[in-house]
Amino acid sequence: MRICKAVTVFAVLLASVGAMACAGAPPPTDRMASAEAEARAAQAVGAEKVPQADLEYRLATEQLAKGRSLMKDGENEAAARMFERANADAELALELARQDAARREAANVGKASAAPSMNP
């Protein structure tokens, strides 16, 4: 019984420290701003027009919304991680759109050089 009591006290202490830590984490506005900027950049390079990039872009915007909601509820640590997820998705969306553009260009150059050239 005595051991149980001690464990309970310890658990309560631990929980309160955890709560303090949570309360202590500031709202992750920087991470939110960073993820938002990344999502805008992805949109600017046309991520929505490339299927795979579009998927990542949508995930980014969804998770941005989740992060904002978590932040509103004071779940700052969870919100910070959610913004990090959104950021990673947006980065990937941006790069997939870039990759698509680069591949298209390479194909075009190849096609142009494969075309029969003018005879003098």
Partner: peptide
Amino acid sequence: EAKAGTKQAQQDAETAR
């Protein structure tokens, strides 16, 4: 992986050019 793909495509384009 995607960045490597972009780089590869750019190199391919350059080679083709």
